[in-house]
Simulated scan of single mutants.
Amino acid sequence: MSSSDTTHSRSRLEPTTERVTFRATDAQLEGLETLVDDDVFPNRSEAIRAAIDELVTAETRGDSE
């Protein structure tokens, strides 16, 4: 199996993910680490995905400020 096939070997129920690079302030990263350290999220990636989901849902509903 080639490395390009690895994302397709997962269960069809699991969504595929793409790597995204972004810049964050020290305060933002500290906040993420606190959420992970407090077991709110298992890791920073899960916390960021949850934040993106919440933002997209709010924007789609028109809940933005």
Rank of each mutant, 00 (worst) to 15 (best):
T7D: 14
E18P: 04
R19M: 15
F41Q: 02
N43E: 02
R61L: 15
G31K: 04
A51K: 08
S2Y: 04
A47G: 03
D26N: 12
A50I: 01
T7H: 13
L35V: 05
E59Y: 13
T25D: 10
V36G: 02
R61S: 15
S3K: 11
E54R: 03
S9R: 09
E54T: 15
V20C: 07
A50W: 02
S64Y: 08
E46H: 06
I48K: 02
V36F: 04
E14Y: 13
R61V: 12
E46L: 04
D38K: 15
R44V: 08
M1K: 01
R23H: 09
L35Q: 02
L55A: 14
V36S: 01
V20L: 11
V36T: 02
A58K: 08
A24M: 12
V40D: 01
S3H: 10
T60E: 09
S45Y: 11
V40W: 04
R19I: 15
E14H: 11
A50S: 03
E14V: 12
E59W: 15
D38P: 14
D39H: 12
A51E: 02
R49H: 02
L13V: 09
D53Q: 12
L35S: 06
G62D: 01
V20R: 11
R44C: 15
T60P: 03
F22R: 10
A47Q: 03
E65W: 15
V40T: 10
L55D: 11
A47C: 06
L29T: 06
L35F: 06
V40R: 05
A58L: 06
A51W: 00
Q28C: 11
A58C: 10
F41H: 00
V36D: 00
I52G: 02
R61C: 10
H8I: 05
L55W: 13
E33M: 08
A47R: 01
T17M: 10
T21F: 08
G31W: 03
T21D: 06
E65I: 14
R23T: 07
T34F: 01
N43F: 10
M1V: 02
L55K: 11
V40Y: 07
L32Q: 02
V56W: 04
T16D: 06
A51N: 08
V40I: 05
S45N: 09
E33A: 10
R10E: 03
E65Q: 15
V56C: 05
T25L: 05
F22V: 14
Q28P: 06
N43M: 11
D26T: 10
E14S: 09
E54A: 12
A47V: 02
R61I: 15
D39V: 01
E54I: 05
M1H: 00
E65D: 13
T17G: 05
D37T: 10
I48N: 00
R49Y: 00
D39L: 02
D26L: 05
F41P: 00
A51H: 07
S9N: 07
S64E: 02
A50M: 04
R49Q: 04
D63A: 03
T16L: 09
G62F: 01
H8A: 12
T6S: 10
D5V: 04
Q28I: 08
T17K: 09
E33T: 09
D38G: 14
R49K: 14
D5E: 13
T60N: 09
E46V: 05
R61M: 11
S45C: 13
V56S: 08
T17A: 08
H8N: 11
